[in-house]
Every structure is written in structure tokens, then in C-alpha cells.
Simulated scan of single mutants.
Amino acid sequence: MEAENHTAIEQFFLIGLSEDPEMQSILFGLFMSMFLVTMLGNLLIILVTSCDSHLHTPMYFFLCNLSFVDICLTSTTIPKMLVNIYMHTMEISYTECLTQVYFFNNFLGMDNFLLTIMAYDRFVAICHPLNYTVIMNPHVCGLLVLLSWIIMFWVSLIHMLLMKQLSFSINTEIPHFFCELTELLRVARSDTHINNFFLYLVTALLGVFPVIGIAFSYFHIVSALLKMSSIGNKYKAFSTCGSHLCVVSLFYGTGFVVHLSSSIAHSSQRNTITSIMYTVVTPMLNPFIYSLRNKDVKGALGRLLRRVHFCP
């Protein structure tokens, strides 16, 4: 099919998870349930960490931001998917698609930054406890989050501006349930070398270095834990890191599988299913991981429920 200029493109077609009509109602119910659980769970984390003064610490400040970003990340993809299933259509407009690319990359990058900052926070708390309140003061915490937003704003904006230079065939089909950047580059009909170069550069800088930073932090954390003589202190320190490690493993593990499998042997169905893990499942599980494995969060949640129960 002859490629047309991107200005002539009005819409794309999202293939989704299945073209089987009998599966649509099952997928709608499943993803609607997951979306609601994600919203309620993360909103509860935000409410608990905001209302309980015991949780007004850097660690829970970053957790609150992570929950907010997870809400935004899931809201970028799932509502459009649910609308398409309900309306029995696969259409997404050109403008909606680029907007989805921008916000998805923005919030995914923020997840990446926040997990890295949280690892650094645990490193300072365990390895430099006497200087913790000085190093991780509210000004520094706010500045770290603000810089992360600024960086991702410009990175996502450059991605979107580069996308606007590409041309696509009319009625282009995207083998995914949302407008994912790498899938769009694959179906483009114009040269994507600049886009791919910038994508690889960003992945190297904002993907590899944070992982190295997290690994460095936990290397020193484990070393510090081994030197502790008190089993109680070891358990307390490890309990604050266990939840973070679970989330990091889910987020980076599934992301690594997606990019590795797509670079070795492209399989749209496999990539789509794996993408669900870090776009839907991980944001949904984060509140449970942090609440079930964290005594402070469970205690704050209990105090909040008692306060609501005894409210006249």
C-alpha cells in the first residue's frame, strides 16, 4: 500500500488482545475489574500516606508519588481499550494515538525514576542513618521528583515531535491494545532511523543507568545488613526494602522480557501479553505489595478505618 503523508492520516486501528467476538465480553470484564482495583488500591495508598502523620517521611512521600503515577499510567491505556471493546471498534484517532504515546512514555519513565529514587532513599536510610534526615530533607525529595517530571516532559515531547515527522499507510493496523512507541515505529512507512536512535539513547540513559543505580544501592544495603549484629534491626531494615524489591523485580523483569523478545524475535502477541504485566498488573499489585508487607502502612490503614468507623 502506498504510504501517505501523516497529515492525511485520521485514525489507526488497534488489533487488541483478541479478534474473537466471544472473548470481548471476558476481556472487558477482566480489564474493567483490574482497572477498578488499580484505581482503588492506589487511591487508598495516597489517602493513607497523606492523612497519617506517621507516614510523612521521604519513603512514603515517594510511595505516594508512585501510586499517583501508576493511576495515570493505567488510565492512559485501559479506558480507551475498554471503550473500543464496548463499542465493538478498533479505531483510535491520529491525535489520540500521539497523545497516548506522549503520556504513556511520560508516566512509564516516572515509574522508572521513582523506583530508582526509592532505592537511593533506602540506601541512605540504612547505610547513613545518622545523616538521613539531613540528606533526604523535604527540599531534596521535592527537587528529585520535580527533576524527574521535567526530564520526562522533554523526553516524551521529543518522542512525539519525532513521531509527527513519520508517514503511515491509510488504515494502518497496530498489533497492540494501545499506541506503543516501538509498535508504531514498526508500522511506519517512512525512515525511522532518527526515532530509533533517540529511543535507544533514551533507553540506555534512562533505563540502564537507573538499574545500575538500584543494583549499586542494594549492594551497599546488603553489605550493611550483613554487618548488623541485631537480628531485629536486620529484619526491620529488610522489611522496608522487601516491598520495593518486589515492585522493582516486576517492573524491570517484565520490561526486560518485552524488549529482549522484541529484539530477538518479534512476536506481537507475546509482546502484548508481556506489556500487560508492567502496564496493568504491576500498578495493580503495587498497593497490595506495600500494604501487605509493610507494618507502617497496615497500621496507618487500621487507624484510618477506625477513624472512619467512629465518625458520627
Rank of each mutant, 00 (worst) to 15 (best):
V248M: 01
T182K: 07
H220F: 05
M277P: 07
F197T: 04
I85N: 02
F12V: 06
F256H: 05
L185W: 10
N294D: 10
T76G: 02
Y132I: 08
S249T: 14
S148V: 04
A3Q: 03
R186Q: 03
H220P: 03
F251T: 12
F310L: 00
S262M: 09
L27K: 12
V281K: 05
A237S: 10
Y218G: 09
S33E: 10
W149T: 12
I212F: 11
F198G: 02
A265I: 07
D52M: 14
T89C: 00
A204Y: 02
E22Y: 09
V257P: 06
F113P: 07
G253H: 06
S263T: 00
T182Q: 09
S263Y: 03
C127Y: 00
F28D: 10
F251G: 10
M284Y: 02
G255I: 03
T7Q: 14
L130N: 04
N196V: 01
P312N: 06
I273P: 00
F251A: 14
N195D: 03
H6E: 09
F209I: 15
N286E: 10
M1K: 09
H176S: 10
M160C: 14
S93C: 04
L226K: 13
T254M: 08
L98H: 14
A8H: 11
I150S: 03
H176K: 04
H220A: 11
L82S: 01
F256T: 04
Y290H: 12
G41Q: 10
A204I: 08
G207N: 07
K295E: 11
H309E: 06
C311G: 00
E180P: 03
T240Q: 06
T49R: 15
K234Q: 11
E2W: 12
Q269N: 09
L40V: 14
I135G: 06
F288G: 10
E10R: 15
M152K: 05
D52V: 11
F238H: 01
G109H: 03
I92M: 08
L301F: 02
R270G: 02
I9N: 08
Y278T: 11
M90R: 02
Y218I: 06
N286D: 06
M90F: 00
T182S: 12
E91H: 05
R303S: 08
N5E: 12
P58F: 12
T77H: 04
I71P: 05
N42S: 11
V222N: 07
D111E: 07
S190M: 04
A125E: 02
I9G: 09
F219V: 09
F13G: 08
R189E: 09
K80G: 07
Y86V: 00
A125G: 01
K236D: 09
M284I: 08
D52C: 14
T282C: 11
V69T: 09
W149R: 10
Y94S: 12
I45E: 08
